[in-house]
Amino acid sequence: MKILVCISKSPDTTTKIAFKENNSQFDDAMVQYIVNPYDEWYALVRALELKETFGGNVTIINVGLAENDAIIRKALAIGADDAVRIDADPSDALYTAEQISAYAKVQNFDLILTGKETINYNGSAIGGMVAELLGLPYVSLATKLVIAVNTATIEQDIDGGTQVVECDLPLVISAAKGMAEQRIPNMRGIMAARTKSLTVVSAIDSPKLTAVKSYTLAEGRIDCKYINSSEPEKLIELLHTEAKVI
């Protein structure tokens, strides 16, 4: 089975968010970058499990500049066979998806996996866009993936519940919590990753349709108002008269 896993670079989940250049850029001076957790814990690990069952090959793809090689090596250390980096700034979702699908088009993957969203831009867009550009079915927010012969059985989160769907390969799937368990790379994996193939591919021409003009930090709460634990009924009163939410 030939599997492509799309990974994105994101700041560690505990990062304190700050901006620079007049709030036009993310300030990453002190930031530790990681593989986006949904891409790593769920999409990549499930791909590796499928390869362990059926044999085949797991390829990592990332759209980004040379600084991304460190997180690509991490994905290789976890167990992917090889990697491709499209040398471009992934600042617009459709632009990024065009890059991935231009590569995937000529490779005939059986399965393309992404995380359900990145934790920095939360767009949940790349999987659907890649599917459309390749003319493939797309199953989003998948929590379980089983493959038998040529058919994938997938459980996915829908609004207010879950559903089970079936679809023949090839297809694109976005992975959510539940699909697999995080794997920590071992020393052997880390050593092996150094010599695995990481191919750098030039970007194709494609317009960027969106751009960030500026960032602002989400408004913090003004000081917390404390209510004495002996009179919790005051809370109900304040929620009605002051916050006006009940």
Binding site: D92, A93, L94, A97, G123, A125, E132, L141, L209
Partner: peptide, 21 residues
């Protein structure tokens, strides 16, 4: 759920810039 599945596909199909969320 529906928007996350349909909006990105439509964006790619008609080449429309997408702001998600």
């Amino acid at each position: 759920f529906t928007g996350k599945a349909v909006a990105p596909r439509l964006s790619a199909s008609i080449k429309a810039g997408l702001i998600a969320g």
